[in-house]
């Protein structure tokens, strides 16, 4: 049985379409990310699930029950807001106990459950503090506990990491994922950060312009992007315009690139991930020739930008050791790029 099911939901604001009819399902215990650039409709979708936005058409089902017409307080969802939205006049314990209070759970029981939820996010020692006395990361864990304590049918996360600094982000990411998995929470997360989505989700739904571009696992989206937009949005891709020709792909400026088969026959885009490309000196003899335009040292890896005619191609490779053949490469040097045709994908727009 599906915990959350969206059936062709749609939202129009006046003439503008925010969500243009989308359907998706989330199984019990699954974490699905709604990913996309700002304005793609992911937040509107989340708010339709929570009940803050009434769909113009379509329906929302939670545990098989149609909740489309129910008010937010009648739905069994718990939303962790991007701003956390803690109640500033209540202690941490009162914040966490609020949902239970609304469900008329007795004081003793409420306190025990709140403390248990706080223990899960390792904040039981701050139960009597007020939100303003906590750090951003602690506030967020309170917001999580406030939702967890209700054991909701659907857990909703709105950009959960966006207000944290880079160092905390990784930590909280694994913490949320661990919690979600151990409690088997059915979770819908909204994010614009593809790394966040890739690392945390069981499945991703990539949206753009109110529509679903592609849905699937992280591998599906990364390895087999459905179109050029997906290839560029998820991970990094060199997307080159041109057309399929024989067994390869002819770029707009005439270079022939290797391809496995004329898979997407009508495909006018060619996508190759930077880390799939092998960079070699000119004298390697194999591959497509180009000129090295830029070298970015990233520590363990180095990013190269190579001009194939007028087309810039990004390559990411392990930083060469002192004895490596690539050591001592300089901008302007002629180089050769090679990759197996199977690594590349021919895509529609």
């Amino acid at each position: 049985m599906k915990s959350l099911e969206l059936v062709n939901i749609r939202k129009d604001y006046g003439g503008a379409v925010a969500v243009a009819g989308m359907s998706m399902q989330i199984a019990r215990g699954e974490l699905v990310s709604l990913l996309g650039p700002s304005g793609c409709g992911k937040t509107t979708t989340l708010r339709m699930v929570a009940g803050f936005v009434a769909p113009s058409a379509g329906s929302v089902l939670i545990d098989g029950r149609d909740v489309t017409r129910l008010a937010p307080y009648e739905r069994d969802t718990a939303l962790v807001f991007q701003s956390y939205a803690l109640f500033p006049h209540m202690t941490v314990a009162q914040n966490v106990g609020f949902g239970l209070e609304m469900r008329k759970v007795g004081r003793a029981e409420r306190e025990a459950q709140s403390l248990e939820a706080l223990r899960r996010v390792r904040l039981e020692h701050l139960a009597d503090r007020y939100p303003r006395q906590l750090s951003g990361g602690q506030q967020q864990r309170v917001a999580l506990a406030r939702g967890l304590v209700l054991n909701p049918a659907v857990f909703l996360l709105d950009e959960p990491l966006s207000n944290l600094d880079a160092k905390l982000r990784g930590e909280v990411r694994s913490e949320i994922r661990a919690l979600q998995q151990s409690l088997e929470l059915t979770t819908l997360m909204v994010t614009h950060d593809q790394e966040e989505a890739l690392t945390m989700s069981d499945r991703l739904v990539l949206m753009e312009g109110g529509r679903v571009r592609q849905a699937g696992t992280a591998q599906d989206l990364y390895e087999r992007p459905a179109d050029a937009f997906v290839a560029e949005f998820v991970g990094r891709s060199n997307v080159i315009e041109g057309r399929a020709e024989g067994g390869g792909f002819r770029t707009a400026c005439g270079t022939l690139l290797p391809a496995a088969a004329a898979g997407a026959a009508g495909g006018s885009f060619y996508a190759i991930r930077p880390e799939k490309i092998v960079l070699a000196r000119e004298d390697a003899g194999e591959g497509v020739g180009g000129a090295l335009r830029e070298i970015l040292y990233l520590g363990a890896q180095t990013e190269y930008t190579v001009m194939l005619g007028q087309t810039p191609v990004t390559v990411i490779a392990a930083t060469p050791g002192p004895d490596d053949a690539l050591a001592g490469l300089r901008t302007g040097d002629p180089v050769r790029l090679s990759w197996p045709g199977a690594s590349a994908r021919l895509l529609g727009a």
Binding site: Y73, T77, F87, P88
Partner: peptide
């Protein structure tokens, strides 16, 4: 008062009346 605080109350099951008096 951020609107989200009121939304949070509703999301946690507070009917409008209780949301008003508690939040």
């Amino acid at each position: 008062i951020p609107r989200q605080v009121e939304e949070a109350a509703a999301n946690l099951g507070a009917r409008p009346g209780r949301s008003f008096f508690r939040v």
